[in-house]
Design a protein around this nucleic acid. Structure first.
Length: 208
DNA sequence: CCTCTGATCTTCT
DNA sequence: GAAGATCAGAGGG
């Protein structure tokens, strides 16, 4: 009998971006490598980017470019960009192809393939250093721009697995302002970052 | 624990 | 030509 967890499909991503950002908490991000080696992390921190209104979003004011094209693709499409000249960040598009919004994956709790993750991030001293940041998790799971525009509902090497039937109750989720978007005016203060309360794997703690 | 700084290069102005 | 949806390491408290 097979008991592989089902992957998250189009319907999961085809709804409000904040709903997706919350619902992704607790789900598994799976990276399959040659010889079926898997590196897997449980999502513990996300951020919602609500273009074209959102000043912090790369799609603010309908800025559609070669780089941001993935955000105008089907819900469940990966948007991977390079930041600070050296770090990759992974997003998943949401809502529908004509609404340029996405969820940024900011932190994972390592679940499977920790040795492989550590091999790619040898400087990590603790388990909580492996995937506790948007660019740490892309290093740990070996995700780069080769995955930009990949359909994560069908991609054989990168996808989400349903690890939990229902989303976490509101009381288990901490909502805070997003990280590193001070330039975004009123949008900077909006509580669009979501963390699994109590997880030691988040990119940074939040105020009580 | 904290704050500060250098690294590094694509993207858009 | 400037500015990043960041990270790691150094130095101080």
């Amino acid at each position: 009998m097979s008991c592989a967890a089902p992957r998250l499909g189009r319907d999961f991503f085809a709804r409000g971006t904040v709903a997706v950002a919350r619902a992704l908490l607790g789900q598994h991000l799976v990276r399959v490598e040659p010889c079926d080696r898997r590196t897997v992390g449980r999502v513990v921190e996300t951020e919602a980017y609500l273009g074209p209104e959102d000043r912090a979003a790369h799609t603010f004011n309908y800025r559609k470019t070669e780089r941001t094209a993935a955000m105008w693709m089907a819900p469940g499409t990966a948007y991977v960009f390079l930041t600070y000249g050296m770090h990759h960040c992974l997003n998943v598009s949401t809502v529908s192809a004509d609404v340029p919004q996405a969820v940024l994956l900011r932190a994972l709790e390592p679940v499977e393939g920790m040795a492989q993750m550590h091999a790619r991030r040898p400087k990590s001293k603790r388990l909580t250093d492996l995937c506790s940041g948007p660019a740490k998790l892309t290093q740990a799971l070996d995700i780069d721009r080769g995955f930009d525009r990949a359909d994560l509902t069908t991609c054989p090497t990168l996808f989400f697995e349903r690890a939990r039937k229902r989303g976490y109750p509101e009381s288990q989720i901490a909502a805070t302002p997003r990280v590193g978007v001070d330039y975004a005016g009123d949008w900077a203060a909006r509580p669009l970052r979501f963390c699994l309360r109590g997880s030691p794997h988040v990119s940074r703690p939040w105020p009580d």
